[in-house]
Design a binder for these strands. Structure first.
Length: 212
DNA sequence: TATCACTAATCC
DNA sequence: GGATTAGTGATA
């Protein structure tokens, strides 16, 4: 795992799990410097100690297969199972223990990588959805603004109609509630008086949209 | 004492 | 250079 990837993970953790992040950060601060391990030494002839290169024995395919199979059954290695596996594989029980230890570490790393990848995808999806919703809100605000302007224009037209038709014959019609259809905005409304405009909502209930 | 994290050493 | 084996010290 690269340093920058670790930084990315820490950033994500700090964002989504601040409590866990503070614990991890505290752990990082309290990590003590480790001593460097010395190279293997053996007693040579004439009581001189010699530095020897450790020969690492690679396990055979068959040994690894059986170990993998056993690990698949159970990650924990009890003493009895360790001894049995060691004898079956012709290995030192300590080697079996080391193999399980390393395998657990590799397995844990793999799980962390998978979890990180899942969280990263979720995070990216959330950001995308956020942008989509913000765009939608902007579009709806524009529509609302247009609708309000149109209502205002229609009201002005209505008022000028009343003043120009102020005769006894037309007085009957002036008592009717003017009706506006703003189809392009999906709005249908009715002027109740000079100061109030009602609009039908999705359930066809009349609600006040605008009040002078 | 078993297990873990970290690391060195080695292999391919 | 990544994967694997193994040593080391800390911790529960």
């Amino acid at each position: 795992m690269t340093g920058s990837k670790v930084d990315d993970q820490m950033e994500l953790i700090s964002h989504f799990y601040p409590k866990i992040y503070s614990q991890l950060a505290q752990q990082e601060e309290t990590v003590k410097p480790r001593r460097r391990r010395k190279k293997n030494k053996v007693e040579g002839r004439n009581n001189t100690s010699e530095v020897v290169m450790r020969k690492r024995k690679l396990l055979s395919e068959e040994q690894v297969n059986l170990l993998e199979q056993s690990f698949g059954d159970q990650h924990k290695l009890e003493t009895e199972r360790k001894a049995k596996l060691a004898s079956e594989l012709g290995l030192d029980p300590h080697q079996v223990a080391v193999w399980f230890q390393n395998k657990r570490a590799r397995w844990k790393n793999k799980k962390l990588e998978e979890e990180y990848s899942k969280l990263k995808t979720q995070h990216e999806d959330t950001i995308t959805e956020k942008y989509r919703l913000e765009t939608e809100v902007l579009k709806m605000k524009e529509q609302l603004c247009e609708a309000e302007k149109k209502i205002e224009r229609l009201l002005l037209e209505h008022k000028s109609d009343i003043s120009s038709n102020n005769s006894p014959t037309s007085s009957i019609f002036s008592m009717e509630q003017p009706h506006f259809n703003l189809g392009e905005f999906g709005i249908e409304g009715q002027l109740m008086d000079d100061n109030m405009f009602f609009v039908a909502d999705y359930q066809s209930n009349y609600v006040t949209l605008w009040d002078n």
